[in-house]
């Protein structure tokens, strides 16, 4: 379902251009942005992930650790039209929570593109 499996391969220009192209093509779109990081974080502040209503995505906010959760939240944001500020911390395997195995924390802001 993804057009780029959470690799950091897409450039920032490709991600932002894709957000625009998808929206122009009539797809519903959300843009996720890393707004803060604490400790060791896989992707720097300002990294982007673009998501459409069907769960297709391009870009990376964590190098693969929490993309799945961000995509799920983004589909909510697209449906509700209300932005969300998400925080992800250390992975907790016993609680089955998604998180960052590197031990860092990140904040991700998800907004709908109208």
């Amino acid at each position: 379902m993804s057009e780029n499996l959470a690799g950091g391969l897409a450039t920032e220009s490709e991600i932002l251009a894709t957000a625009e192209t998808w929206r122009l093509a009539g797809r519903s779109v959300a843009l996720a942005t890393v707004t803060e990081t604490w400790g060791s974080a896989p992707r720097p502040v300002g990294s982007h992930l673009v998501i459409d209503g069907d769960g297709n995505f391009l870009g990376s906010v964590s190098g693969g650790c929490v993309e799945g959760a961000v995509v799920t939240e983004a589909i909510d944001v697209i449906a509700s039209g209300v932005p969300k500020l998400l925080e992800f911390g250390v992975a907790d395997e016993t609680a089955w929570r998604v998180g960052l195995s590197c031990g860092g924390r990140i904040a991700v802001h998800v907004v709908p593109v109208r």
Binding site: R23, P112, V113
Partner: peptide
């Protein structure tokens, strides 16, 4: 975010 804002952002980046 409005699409117009995103388009303007991309225009600045491309230029």
């Amino acid at each position: 975010m409005d699409l117009a804002l995103l388009s303007a952002l991309n225009r600045h980046r491309n230029a």
